[in-house]
């Protein structure tokens, strides 16, 4: 993959708006995020709406028979993916606070999130 050395650096944002486990999107977005780390791009992860549940502490999906992939969010730092943003309104609407989250994040207001998104070159949603 010679494109890894193309020298182009774009602002990528992975927008997560769906809860984990009920659909596959959270897991497969995470697989995309991990691959993106190999391309030296400016990677951002946004968690809003039900997407904030993807990084809720204490996920124990053994009882529903699916893999617990939530620890992977904590491993992202090791791939130099450190720009994680969570929308404050989405947390509040769901009765959650930053303390409920399993990774360090930057909490932004909805207005700030909109401005951040507006600066992206590539937005990937699922």
């Amino acid at each position: 993959m010679d494109d890894m050395e193309s020298g182009i650096v774009k602002k990528f944002m992975f927008v997560n708006r769906k809860a984990p486990h009920g659909t596959v999107y959270a897991l497969e977005v995470l697989e995309m995020v991990l691959i993106s780390a190999a391309f030296d791009q400016d990677v951002h992860l946004a968690f809003l709406d039900d997407g904030v549940l993807q990084i809720k502490k204490g996920q124990t999906p053994a009882g529903i028979g699916v893999k617990n992939f939530s620890p992977t969010y904590r491993a992202l730092e090791g791939y130099d993916i450190e720009k994680l943003y969570v929308e404050a309104e989405s947390l509040a609407e769901r009765g959650l606070t930053e303390d409920d989250l399993l990774v360090p994040v930057e909490v932004l207001s909805r207005a700030e999130m909109g401005k951040l998104m507006a600066g992206m070159d590539v937005v990937l949603t699922a």
């Binding site: 774009k10 190999a38 391309f39 070159d121 590539v122 990937l124 949603t125």
Partner: peptide
């Protein structure tokens, strides 16, 4: 999956349908 990231880098626009 790298082919998707590469497409995001090299194409002028990426449009998602889901």
């Amino acid at each position: 999956l790298g082919q998707l990231i590469e497409a995001g880098i090299h194409a002028d626009r990426l449009v998602t349908f889901g």
